[in-house]
């Protein structure tokens, strides 16, 4: 139970002695020097190639630029949220199939998980972009990005949920059964709520992948952050600076999601004795 306070580092390595402490200090110093040198080299290269010239950066002082990027960010947010909800719902249903005692359902679940994990997201997007309209199905742009990204994530979500269900100690199920609860009630009242707490961090990690997958939205002209960044690039003829700013925004989003996962992990840790 004290594992809540132990970091992975504490669990994997013993505390360093005086010799290794000195070695660590030297290695740290060398790394810092190398990193500073690398940053200097990059900035110098930017300077030499003229990437630092005002024409590549001045438009960031205009608020219309930020409003446009903000609109893209909102698009990314909408697509990722919709996709996340779809992936979670589909993943839950597939997980139910996968753990079912019905052999056919279990097979379907297994096949779906293998299929969606094996096929690249891009192929699903092309399918919804190119093939689906041929069947006369007209989808709004946001669905054309959200559905394929969700399909791509749902297999992993199903596996993550299943791992959570399997991680709940079997005594929990036995206790509920011995009280006369039916299988369905046991699952929804005892097993699944605990399973969910185990896997929230992994689900958020999957949400990070969903956010990154929504960058494919430019393919279908859905105005997400990536698409709007591309528009800015063609307007100002400034590729590097805009991609850099977009990358920083994506990194910030994912960093915040990871922080959220950590926070949830620490605050809802379920500890089970025995």
């Amino acid at each position: 139970m004290s594992s809540a306070h132990l970091s992975v580092k504490d669990a994997l390595y013993e505390a360093p002695g005086p010799k290794s402490r000195r070695a660590i200090r030297i290695a740290t110093a060398i790394s810092i020097v190398l990193i500073i040198a690398l940053i200097y080299a990059i900035i110098r290269q930017f300077y030499i190639t003229g990437q630092l010239s005002p024409k590549y950066w001045s438009f960031f002082t205009r608020w219309t630029t930020w409003r446009f990027l903000g609109a893209g960010l909102l698009g990314t947010f909408e697509a990722a949220m919709l996709s996340g909800v779809l992936a979670l719902s589909a993943g839950f249903l597939i997980m139910l199939c996968r753990i079912s005692t019905n052999k056919v359902l279990s097979m379907i679940g297994r096949a779906y998980i293998q299929f969606t994990r094996g096929v690249p997201t891009l192929l699903f997007i092309y399918f919804f972009f190119l093939a689906v309209p041929q069947f006369g199905l007209k989808l709004a742009a946001i669905w054309k990005i959200a559905i394929p990204v969700a399909i791509s994530a749902s297999g992993v979500v199903a596996e993550v949920l299943r791992n959570g269900v399997n991680a709940v100690p079997k005594g929990q199920r036995e206790a509920a059964l011995s009280l006369g609860m039916r299988e369905r009630a046991v699952f929804y009242k005892v097993i699944f709520p605990q399973a969910l707490r185990y896997v929230v961090p992994s689900l958020i990690a999957q949400l990070v992948i969903v956010v990154k997958d929504t960058t494919y939205a430019y393919i279908i002209n859905f105005p997400d952050l990536m698409q709007n960044a591309k528009v800015l690039i063609s307007n100002y003829d400034a590729m590097l600076s805009i991609y850099l700013v977009a990358a920083v925004i994506y990194i910030l989003i994912c960093y915040m999601l990871n922080k959220l996962a950590e926070h949830i992990n620490n605050s809802t840790k379920v500890s089970v004795r025995g």
Binding site: P169, E174, A175, S178, Q194, S271, R273
Partner: peptide, 18 residues
């Protein structure tokens, strides 16, 4: 389920709903 509910069970490892 009905007959199980008539016979309580206390386990070695308590098995309270965590």
């Amino acid at each position: 389920a009905e007959l199980r509910s008539k016979v309580g069970m206390v386990f070695q490892s308590f098995n309270l709903f965590a």
